[in-house]
Computed example of a mutant assay.
Amino acid sequence: MKMNRRNRKAAGFTIVEVAVTLVISAIFIIGIVRLQASVSQLSIQQVQRRIASDLAYNNLRKYANDNQPTWFRCEVAGGVAKPNVLINGNITVRGLPSPVSQKVVATAPYLCGGGTGGVGMPIRIESVVTYGSNHRKVVHVSYAAF
C-alpha cells in the first residue's frame, strides 16, 4: 500500500520556522551585547569619577584642616576679596583621560573682618578637577576659619 503525500508526517522544522527563530535569537543576543557594553561604559565612567573626586578632596584637605591658614592672604579691592589661587595646573593621573587639570582657589566671601575670640571670617576653599576631552568636572568645597 502506497502512502500519499498528505498522510505522511513532516519530520523536522520548516525553513520559515528556522528563519524566524534565528531572527528572534539574533535580536535577543544583540540586545544583551548592547546592554553589556553600556554597563561596562558606565562602570568605567564611575571609576574615573571616583579617582577625580579623590584627587579634588585630597587637594581640598591640604588647606581645609585644623591648622591655622597661614597660606591665605586676604586682600580687598573694590569691596570684593581677591581670590587666592593655591593650585592651578595640568597633571597626568593614572585612570583619568587627558587632559586633567586641577585648581584650588580660596576666597573670603564675607571679606576680611575679624571675629570674636580670635576667630575671623570664614575662608571658602574650592577644589576643582576637570578631566577628559568632554571636560567632566568634580568640585569639592569647604570652609576654614581665618
Rank of each mutant, 00 (worst) to 15 (best):
V16W: 11
R61G: 05
I87A: 11
V138N: 07
V47N: 06
V18K: 09
Q68C: 02
G118I: 02
K103Y: 04
Q68R: 13
Y143A: 13
G117Y: 03
V23C: 08
V16A: 10
Q41E: 02
L96T: 12
N134F: 03
A64Q: 00
T116I: 11
A64T: 06
P97N: 14
N65Q: 09
S127H: 02
D54F: 15
T92N: 01
S98A: 15
G78Y: 03
D54Q: 10
I123R: 10
T107S: 08
R124A: 08
A11L: 09
R94P: 11
S43G: 05
V100P: 00
N84I: 07
G114K: 00
V105P: 07
A52L: 03
K62M: 05
P69C: 10
C74H: 04
R49Q: 15
T14Q: 09
F72S: 00
A37R: 04
P83L: 00
Q48T: 09
A56Y: 02
R124Q: 11
R73K: 11
C74I: 15
D66H: 01
N59M: 12
I29E: 05
G132F: 04
A144R: 07
V139Y: 08
N4S: 14
Y57F: 10
G113S: 11
L60S: 03
Q46L: 14
F28I: 15
V138E: 10
I24C: 07
E17L: 11
S25E: 02
E126T: 15
L86N: 05
V139F: 12
Q102S: 14
H135Y: 15
Y57C: 01
R34V: 09
G95L: 12
V47H: 08
R8A: 07
G114D: 14
G12Q: 06
S40H: 12
V33Q: 00
L55M: 10
L111V: 06
G78A: 11
R49L: 14
Q102A: 06
S133Q: 13
V119N: 12
V18D: 03
F28W: 07
V16T: 10
F146T: 02
G118S: 13
V129Q: 08
G79E: 12
A26M: 10
I30W: 08
Q46P: 14
V39C: 05
A19F: 00
L111P: 01
S38I: 00
L35W: 03
A106C: 03
I51D: 01
V105N: 08
Q68T: 15
D66N: 14
V119C: 15
G89V: 15
H140A: 09
R136V: 02
F146I: 05
S25F: 14
K103E: 11
M3F: 14
I44A: 04
G118E: 07
K137E: 13
G114A: 09
L22K: 12
R73E: 00
R8E: 07
I15C: 05
G89T: 13
D66L: 10
A11G: 04
V141Y: 00
Y131M: 11
I24H: 01
N84R: 08
N134Q: 06
A144E: 06
R5Q: 03
P122K: 14
A56P: 01
F146V: 01
P83H: 02
I123F: 06
T21W: 10
T116R: 12
R94M: 02
R34P: 06
T92F: 04
S38A: 07
N59V: 06
R8Y: 01
E126C: 08
G12P: 08
G114V: 07
Q36N: 00
